[in-house]
């Protein structure tokens, strides 16, 4: 009972302008409030933050003169901290946070698959070279190669479209690749990224 009275006296002194009263109130109840928050969030840094926010709210309410629960200081502060703990979990549910200090590193599964600037330029050059090489091929071979590689048609479909047998289409494809390799070797063209 004495404790409750003392709290209420300290609160009223603080409202009247005695700053030391707040220090005494914090000193008296810090362990209980801090332990309560920690028992819910199980993280020292978050506990520290919520403890601080709790007392910022207490200070603002007392200074504004909105406090009207004389004699129930500790339950009131505990309720504020409890609400802030709930806010913390709500916020984390909306925006889950992954910290990187455990065994699991989130960046090991979230890699940037985009090419960097240099590789993009090389890719464009390779594609241009291949296009020019394909253009150099005889028309019948070029036609089969484009249908097979770029339009993804089967040799049966190619033979139907071009009006030749499957074997002829296969042969043209084979010669197209041989001719491409020949030109690449002859001019020492590097087609790798």
């Amino acid at each position: 009972m004495k404790q409750i009275l003392q709290d209420s006296v300290l609160v009223s002194n603080y409202i009247k302008g005695d700053e030391c009263a707040l220090g005494k109130l914090i000193e008296r109840h810090k362990q209980r409030i801090y332990s309560f928050i920690y028992s819910k969030v199980l993280d020292r840094d978050i506990t520290e933050d919520i403890f601080q926010d709790t007392f910022i709210k207490v200070i603002k309410t007392l200074k504004k003169g909105n406090y009207n629960e004389e004699g129930k200081f500790l339950p009131w502060v505990m309720r504020i901290s409890h609400n802030l703990v709930i806010d913390h979990f709500r916020k984390n549910n909306r925006m889950p946070k992954y910290d990187n200090n455990g065994d699991f590193n989130i960046f090991s599964v979230l890699s940037d698959t985009d090419l960097n600037a240099e590789n993009r330029i090389i890719k464009t050059q390779v594609e241009t070279d291949v296009r020019r090489l394909v253009d150099e091929l005889p028309n019948d071979q070029k036609e089969v190669l484009l249908m097979r590689m770029y339009q993804d048609l089967s040799f049966k479909e190619i033979s139907e479209k071009t009006g030749v047998s499957i074997n002829t289409a296969l042969g043209r494809m084979r010669y197209a690749l041989i001719n491409l390799r020949k030109v690449i070797d002859k001019h020492n063209i590097v087609l790798t990224n």
């Binding site: 700053e19 220090g23 914090i26 810090k30 801090y34 332990s35 920690y38 601080q52 200070i59 200074k63």
Partner: peptide, 24 residues
């Protein structure tokens, strides 16, 4: 461990300074 926990001195000092600085 939970029973003996209390906030850092810096946190309490911040709160006391905040209280002194705040006026309504």
């Amino acid at each position: 461990e939970i029973k003996k926990m209390s906030p850092k001195k810096e946190t309490i000092s911040f709160l006391l300074n905040y209280s002194k600085a705040l006026s309504v």
